[in-house]
Amino acid sequence: MSAEYLSMGYGQILAATLLIIVNMGISLVLGLALERRLLVASARTVVQLSLLGFVLGWVYQHPQWYVLFPVAGLMTFVAGHAAIRRVRRTYPKALVTGTTAMAAGSWSITLIGLIVIVRPTPWYAPQYAIPLLGMILGNTLNGISLGIDRFGEELVNKRDRIETLLALGATRWEAAHEPMREALRTGMTPIINSMSVVGIVSIPGMMTGQLLAGVVPVEAVRYQMIIMFMIASGTALGTLLAVLLSYFRLFSNKHQLLVSQLTSR
């Protein structure tokens, strides 16, 4: 860590809070009715981040695998749940499908990243494992959510096409090919977009953090590239698995489209 790094105290947090209070004042004066929501959101920010700080601090002090793994498992479960909650059409065991895809996609990439690329000692050092897994989970969540969502929409909206293909003798794989391709494309679009504009339109959050912490730009850039590739592979793998598992749930081995399994919410 560099000497240029400035530590923040409670006084500075209070100063930042004043910015929010000014905004709440503006909202009150203009009758925008935003002050309550701003207050709740700010309170959540304080509580959630403080909790995170405590938990991370505790985990850092206990760098054992049997501490790390339950934490990682909980993060994965919450991410799987969040991914499925945002899907417009769900089906039986969608939560299991989403969480399985989430775990397989993000854990495998995080493991490779830790053991082969970043190589901390020990390889499960929470300082590296938790932020890496967190970033991959966050992005894989989007991919899985968008992928399963689009797949369901495709099956419902293109049901006649799919059944026409099946009626003409298509296997379930042949009939599902186009919907699966669309679902994967949709799931991968956000990460591909952000990879395309990174550094031009946006400076990624992780890199911003490293820059603020005084890391030299070249070093931060190298880290960011590695992270980007890990995120993209995790998202691709997770989305592919989620769509593939959904395919097995929604097309029977008798080459039937089980569209009635899908329920919208």
């Binding site: 026409t164 009626a167 003409l168 003798g169 080459h255």
Partner: peptide, 14 residues
């Protein structure tokens, strides 16, 4: 299904 083929009332095309 390629020998016994169901022809849908509302045809679907790609």
């Amino acid at each position: 299904r390629s020998e016994v083929t169901y022809v849908h009332q509302r045809p679907a095309f790609l």
